[in-house]
Design a protein around this nucleic acid. Structure first.
Lengths: 333, 333
DNA sequence: TTGAAAGCGCTAACAT
DNA sequence: ATGTTAGCGCTTTCAA
């Protein structure tokens, strides 16, 4: 099972050249004759040689890996399709490079220490962070790791130097404008946590659209992105603003909860009340009625995070990125 | 940003001992005096020293990482909550060790090459495989990697030496017996692909229960675990066996499709037709009615895969593991 | 264009 | 119990 791998020396011997030359070929450096290069390539193929990464890292001081660290208090949060899709995007982007992906789910102190250790032991050349809360301690750990850090999503305080985010504000605005365009005038919203950038910006987009249309934006309830909070918020809205004819909900998960409440109370969707969610996670296609929602370019987000990280690793100074969002119209509005 | 990390030599100098002693302390080997140990520990703390993993791997011939390779044709498949939960389980188990997790989504030839490269370059000490199809080429790549391989799920041909699987057969049997216990007698099933162990075993469990009860097991349609196939199969069953009063469906995703069809045709669930799914993915709690289903111990599966892999890496010969499944009764049956 | 040699930072075998 | 030394397999000067 552990049949020793061939070494670079063996390749050199077989190709009849020096180790220096083999190394040059492998890293396709200049100053190698055609003949030498071919001999080496042949030897590599013959021996099925693959460089030992430990030795290489030791010599180059680079690990050839990046880490994706996800901060989530609740393990269930990771089950959120959002993360899976980001990972798919990151993975796809990585296939273009020769980097590997280290995954760390750092919910606890322990997880954070793991990230710290990984970075300090130089096992990774950079970090991507999917942190949920404002001032997540994981961000500090990452920042102290001595390698470039790219954030998924902005922070409220603007403390993230490099990030890739979706244009949440514009997405919410599009959604609200759509509700207006189909004749709704008493539009409510269920927001996400307002101590998160994503929560605030979706709320702002909503208000902006209503203000532009001269509509009142006083129908507001707050949630925390969970399904249960969506249900509770919907119930509150129904009580406080019984006249509402539409509701823009800051996450699909909350929308699922809200739809449940509306169904219980016998309120027709979208007949009586139009509903729009946010995120376009898979669930949105399986609700009844199917959910009109704002799509975030989740895969692109993963891809761009990698791109940005690579630029930083190369020593460049990329600019933060904001990706467009798009309204997906289904049955619920 | 890249303030050079302290080296073991520096620790040794600071502690006033030899490098050998420092190394012994770090790997808590025997033969170190209390005094020396304390001096070293102090120096490590003072300098905030963390061993360089490249150097260590080079010397020990171990990488300190394992890879989780997921084979999925369709990227959407990875979005399946199943994978997310396995990852959570694996991650949790890893926190107990000092191993890191490398994630490879190997849908294509390219992804497979990545796995091959990772293994040959000795970047990982073992592989966990989540392969979907029988004879997945990824399995071959992993097997040739020269490190231990643990499979999630069995293969039909028995070609997997080490695996952790759920007791699918028993789960299906439990589900069918439950349907029988609530008085259903004309029970149908929608199977998964019968060229997969998981598909076959769920089907066998179904047949077993019906045979024991002396019921006919001729009401069968086949699907491929996707929602669409579930819908199609349900439609077929309804046509071919209009008298059926219950249906055991081999995956929750297919059950969602089937529920849609039943709803369209105005067949009451569970009144007219009782429905049981399989997997207990999150979706099962959000269908209408909520789905009675068989729970797989997904997190445990991740945990046990790691445990088995570690044993193999230590050179032990663990035995394959089959984890119990459990019926979760909700509204649909 | 090529070869030789000096590390990269750690472990492990061998002395003491 | 501790120190010393020879690698681990690669990259990268520096000479030639």
């Amino acid at each position: 099972m552990t049949d020793r791998q061939p070494t670079l020396d063996e390749v050199a011997r077989r190709a009849g050249v020096s180790r220096g030359t083999v190394s040059r070929v492998i890293n396709n450096a200049p100053h190698v004759s055609r003949a030498a290069r071919q001999a080496v390539e042949r030897a590599i193929k013959d021996l099925d040689y693959v460089p030992n990464v430990a030795a290489r890292s030791l010599a180059t001081q680079r690990s050839g890996a990046v880490v994706l660290a996800v901060s989530s208090d609740d393990q269930a949060l990771f089950t959120n399709p959002f993360f899976a899709e980001v990972i798919v995007g990151v993975n796809a982007a990585l296939e273009e490079t020769d980097l590997e992906l280290l995954l760390i789910l750092a919910a606890s102190e322990r997880g954070r220490n793991r990230l710290a250790r990984v970075l300090q032991s130089r096992r990774a050349d950079g970090v991507m962070l999917l942190a949920l809360r404002e001032n997540d301690p994981l961000a500090k750990v990452a920042a102290e790791g001595g390698v470039p850090v790219v954030h998924g999503g902005r922070s409220l305080g603007g403390s993230h130097h490099w990030y890739v985010d979706a244009d949440n504000r514009d997405g919410a605005r599009q959604a609200a404008e759509y509700l207006i365009s189909i004749g709704r005038t008493r539009i409510a919203t269920i927001t996400g946590p307002l101590d998160m950038h994503v929560g605030v910006s979706r709320y702002l987009g909503f208000r902006e659209a209503l203000a532009l249309a001269g509509l009142g934006d006083e129908r507001v309830a707050h949630g925390d992105f969970t399904e249960a909070s969506g249900a509770a918020a919907m119930a509150r809205l129904l009580t406080d603003h019984p006249d509402l004819d539409a509701v823009l909900i800051a996450s699909d998960e909350m929308a699922v909860g809200a739809l449940g409440v509306l169904k219980e109370r016998g309120r027709a969707v979208p007949g009586e009340i139009a509903v729009v969610g946010f995120d376009d996670v898979v669930t949105a296609r399986h609700t009844h009625p199917t959910l009109t929602t704002v799509r975030q370019p989740i895969k692109a987000l993963g891809r761009e995070m990698i791109r940005m990280l690579l630029a930083l690793i190369r020593g460049e100074q990329p600019t933060p990125l904001i990706l467009p969002t798009e309204l997906v119209i289904r049955e619920s509005a």
